[in-house]
Deep mutational scan, measured.
Amino acid sequence: LVRYRTISKIPQITLNFVDLKGDPFLASPTSDREIIAPKIKERTHNVTEKVTQVLSLGADVLPEYKLQAPRIHRWTILHYSPFKAVWDWLILLLVIYTAVFTPYSAAFLLKETEEGPPATECGYACQPLAVVDLIVDIMFIVDILINFRTTYVNANEEVVSHPGRIAVHYFKGWFLIDMVAAIPFDLLIFGSGSEELIGLLKTARLLRLVRVARKLDRYSEYGAAVLFLLMCTFALIAHWLACIWYAIGNMEQPHMDSRIGWLHNLGDQIGKPYNSSGLGGPSIKDKYVTALYFTFSSLTSVGFGNVSPNTNSEKIFSICVMLIGSLMYASIFGNVSAIIQRLYSGTARYHTQMLRVREFIRFHQIPNPLRQRLEEYFQHAWSYTNGIDMNAVLKGFPECLQADICLHLNRSLLQHCKPFRGATKGCLRALAMKFKTTHAPPGDTLVHAGDLLTALYFISRGSIEILRGDVVVAILGKNDIFGEPLNLYARPGKSNGDVRALTYCDLHKIHR
């Protein structure tokens, strides 16, 4: 019993810090008490220290592992850092350059016999395009090294910054494609005289377009951006097909006994025919423009016929181009109408809503002055909100995010209106959640004399007048207030005048 009563005193000691020596009952000389009392004092002292730490809000209350900052290894790049964003855009520009100039170089340097010394005699450094290609190869190699040090988000939505895990993730992902696209074939085969082989191998750079397509997928929600990307894709495919079309004609031209190829026909049409040795002929500019003209006309199913396939190889390629053109029509131009419709969806919704308003007016036989006010209010409210119901949009977000959005939407009023000066951010967040926005066209009466005042109004834009009878008592403008002081009276009061809008007004109100 003594032991039980001794232990039962522990909660009292913990909360009230009572010393055991003052209790005459606990001072009985028993061996059990002498053993338990020192333990009680020690526990009391420890609990006292913990309570003191909690009340003082000291940093040592938290466990040590929670006080440590997340460790980022040296030379690790955050995937959302500004440097990584700028670097990704730079790589994107280099990939676009590669997609345009690599097929052009591979096709127009394929057994090209233009006048001038061969590239091997001039030297590697004197070729501007080769120098640019070398810079692109170096940048792609540097990009691989950067990807080995860039964080990523795993399946659990955690940012991984450990170098080993980053390397394994990159090896399992895009490393092989990036490595093949970054191989400097110019340096590996330079001086061997195989410019045709170098041009063909350099087309491996186009593998990076797969990554670019995935990154550009984030802009699919913007109709104008999608339309622009589709047109660029169409032009890029036409450019690639033009390079292939020229390569076919250029390879067949020296081996044909009869002059029936499209390059021969082009030379005869523009007065620059090929001679018996295969030299001469149109310039590279004429060849490229004509090839691009043929691919565009074939892809769009126009086909004027002034550039036509004559050999079997050219006919087979033309059939493939027609098939590609039909697929592009289905996948690209078939979506253009939907994209344009999405661009004008706001206008369509406006006309639909206006039609419903006019049908309501016609069905209920609203008189002319009231009908005009109804239409003007709808037009003004639509121009202010673009038909978007803010309350319906915010309803799907958590309250903390709703408060931040409301604070942002009402920031101008909260910053410049005098009653809100000096208020804490928590108070402003709470008030912003209570605001209701209303609009009024010129001549609209917001409050009639004798109406119950259940709200306090803040003028965000425009001006109003307060009338008693036919006498203008006051004219209020931006950041002015009218209405009933909230919670100042037990019952809502009545208006002693009319409140009429002089201009288009936007008002925020808080109800009782």
Rank of each mutant, 00 (worst) to 15 (best):
L67C: 03
Q68C: 01
Q68S: 07
T76I: 13
L78P: 05
H79E: 05
S81Q: 03
F83Y: 15
W89K: 01
V100S: 01
A107R: 01
L110Y: 05
T113P: 06
E114A: 15
Y124K: 01
C126P: 01
V142K: 02
D143W: 01
R165I: 04
I166D: 01
V168R: 14
V168W: 13
K172N: 03
G173M: 03
W174I: 01
A181W: 01
D186S: 13
G191M: 03
S192A: 10
E195Q: 15
I198W: 11
I198T: 12
L200Q: 03
L201C: 04
K202W: 01
R205C: 01
R205E: 09
L209I: 05
R211L: 01
R211S: 01
V212K: 03
R214L: 01
Y219W: 05
E221M: 04
C232I: 04
A238D: 01
A238Y: 01
L241I: 01
A247R: 01
G249M: 01
G249P: 01
H264T: 03
N265M: 14
G267E: 01
D268V: 14
K272Q: 01
K287M: 04
Y288Q: 01
V289I: 15
V289A: 01
F294R: 01
T295Q: 01
F296K: 01
S298R: 03
V302I: 02
F304S: 06
S308P: 01
N310W: 01
L327E: 02
M328I: 08
A330D: 04
V336H: 02
V336Q: 03
Q341R: 04
Y344M: 13
S345D: 09
Q353Y: 03
L355T: 10
L355E: 11
F360E: 03
F363Y: 08
H380S: 14
S383H: 01
S383Q: 10
M390Q: 09
V393I: 07
G396A: 13
F397E: 01
N410Q: 12
L413C: 07
L414S: 01
Q415N: 08
K418V: 09
K418A: 13
F420A: 01
G426M: 03
G426A: 07
A430K: 10
K436Y: 11
T445G: 02
V447Q: 01
H448N: 14
